[in-house]
Nucleic acid binder design. Structure first.
Lengths: 235, 235
DNA sequence: AAGTGGTCTAGACCACCGT
DNA sequence: CGGTGGTCTAGACCACTTC
């Protein structure tokens, strides 16, 4: 990581997940953390800020830092990069690759990804299976220019781990559009729901830190199995 | 406001919305903003951070600060406090109060709001109408202890403006759970959709800065009219 | 009044982008 | 290489909570 505040944030995140502060639901004071990690106050506060933004804690002026209530159910977390694998920890997750090949951007794609028609894109269609039952259909496009290589093994495990750890991509920000539709016929069959049943849909546009769009995806979720959680801070 | 970085963030937000940087899609450098607002670099960076978190801009090390693409369509913004009125600016929005009274928390309410059974709650049911067509049904509970007074006028305009500007509540954070169901009969009639059509649902638990839950709400949206946008930063 | 987080300043050095 | 953001430090003072 090499950056102090992120390292501290990650360590504290681990401690929180291990239940270290569950008894009191209270974290050490800034002062104590400054001594523990031997950094300046600003650095500690930046680390804390990460935990606040990740939805773990909240701060109360004059009082301290407290754990937020844990969500009991398994939710899809909008703010996390690594998808289902990290969100649904209590479940078994499998992935079936339905398609994986390179194609050229048509006009629709090109407009959405702000690139030339004909730009090479990886096209991937995956069925996600949670606890042995179909959970979602995900269609993704990656710019080949940015993700030069992909295979079934990578697509079956975690694409994002590959992008971050192996390709060292710097992922910057994303737009997620959520809505709800009557499911299309093909998806209904694959997700084992009836035609015209509802479907929860997330369309995702992801950019590198420098602002370039590199991925577009559309996920169709089983309406009875998927719930999205979003933790928001107003400050 | 009284706090410099928020004031600067708000001023820059206005300038962005007015289209001041549309030509270049680039903001002034930190250096320039420091001179313009006569504050330290940290303060400017805190202000900028607000704009990043609000989804307006992104920063590129070594290069500058740039506007994010605007979303063309009208979306519900998960991260904003003021609801529809601010999200759907191009539309006319009306609110019909279907119910507004005080009741005592039952066991379900009490558990969700972490309060005693019998705690006094405002119960509000509203139909939101966008461009003359039914858009959503919203059921909210507010702790009377925290929101001692509410009336139809307030509930028909913006409850949150009232809470913030008049009651001076410090709103801290919220959990939003989004899912998709077959609509219930009553809502179907009110939203003018067919029974068993899909419905987009947001359940919302809102806390004050000190961590106390003060509101619980459930909104049922017209599945063809509501789209949610969430802008996420990974840093 | 003591404890704890929130805001702000001034300055140093590093990392990355573009010319 | 100059320009621009990113990280980090040290210290001051304020605002709120708790007792």
């Amino acid at each position: 990581m090499a950056v102090k505040y992120k390292e501290i944030a990650d360590r504290l995140e681990c401690e929180i997940q291990e239940g270290k502060f569950d008894k009191t639901k209270k974290l050490p004071t800034e002062e104590e953390l400054i001594k523990k990690f031997e950094v300046s106050r600003n650095t500690i506060r930046k680390a804390i800020n990460q935990l606040v933004n990740r939805g773990y804690i909240y701060q109360v002026q004059g009082s301290g830092m407290f754990l937020r209530e844990e969500s009991v159910t398994d939710y899809i977390n909008l703010g996390s990069l690594r998808g289902l694998t990290k969100d649904l920890t209590s479940k078994t997750i499998e992935t079936k690759i339905l398609a994986l090949h390179v194609l050229e951007a048509d006009e629709v794609n090109a407009k959405q990804m702000r690139c030339e028609v004909g730009t090479k894109l990886y096209y991937i269609k995956r069925l996600r299976i949670v606890d042995k039952e179909p959970f979602s259909i995900e269609i993704s496009y990656f710019k080949k220019e940015i993700v030069p290589y992909l295979n079934e093994d990578i697509a079956a495990s975690s694409i994002y781990s590959y992008l971050i750890e192996d390709l060292k991509l710097n992922i910057g920000f994303a737009d997620k559009v959520i809505n709800c539709e009557k499911i299309d016929e093909a998806s209904a069959i694959e997700l084992h729901v009836n035609p015209l049943d509802p479907a929860l849909i997330i369309e995702n546009t992801v950019c590198l830190s420098n602002g370039t769009i590199f991925e577009l995806s559309k996920s169709v979720f089983h309406y009875q199995k998927a719930k999205i959680l979003n933790r928001i801070n107003f400050k």
